[in-house]
């Protein structure tokens, strides 16, 4: 099963690194969409079929928390798994994000194994590299 993945981060560099990380982790990908903030992400989610979102928290225009809250208000978007990829180290905020329904949290700097483990969890290991 190949995945449509949305990468949300205001840093183009980090989005490029995340996309490269998906390939290194041998995660089967059909399409990778990029958004520079939560607003752009919601626009893409309204137009495209997305299986999984990797999103930063601190972003201009609309941050990751606001984006997740907006997704929760939408019947279809709220079913899409969101993995927060952030510098955030506060357990208080991470717990708050989990209460909002995020699937997982990865702290920057990240490793390919972090992405791999989460995709395996979500797919029951059905995306394991052959």
């Amino acid at each position: 099963m190949s995945l449509n993945i949305l990468l949300v981060d205001d840093s183009e560099t980090i989005r490029a690194v995340m996309e490269k990380t998906l390939h290194i982790a041998e995660i089967p990908v059909s399409n990778v969409y990029h958004a520079g903030n939560g607003r752009e992400a919601l626009d893409i989610l309204a137009e495209e079929w997305v299986d999984l979102v990797f999103a930063d928290i601190n972003m201009p225009v609309m941050n990751g928390v606001e984006m997740i809250e907006k997704m929760c208000e939408d019947g279809l978007m709220k079913t899409i798994p969101v993995v927060v990829v952030s510098t955030e180290g506060s357990q208080t905020r991470i717990e708050s994000l989990k209460n909002k329904g995020i699937t997982a949290y990865i702290r920057k700097p990240f490793k390919p194994e972090d992405f791999r483990a989460i995709v395996d969890d979500l797919t029951g290991g059905s995306n394991a590299a052959a």
């Binding site: 510098t87 180290g89 506060s90 208080t92 920057k108 700097p109």
Partner: peptide, 19 residues
């Protein structure tokens, strides 16, 4: 950004919330 996130945890611990 990453240095800052790690530094804040190092200095203040993992409870406080920062923007």
């Amino acid at each position: 950004n990453i240095v800052c996130g790690q530094l804040l945890t190092t200095v203040f611990g993992d409870e406080p919330v920062f923007d």
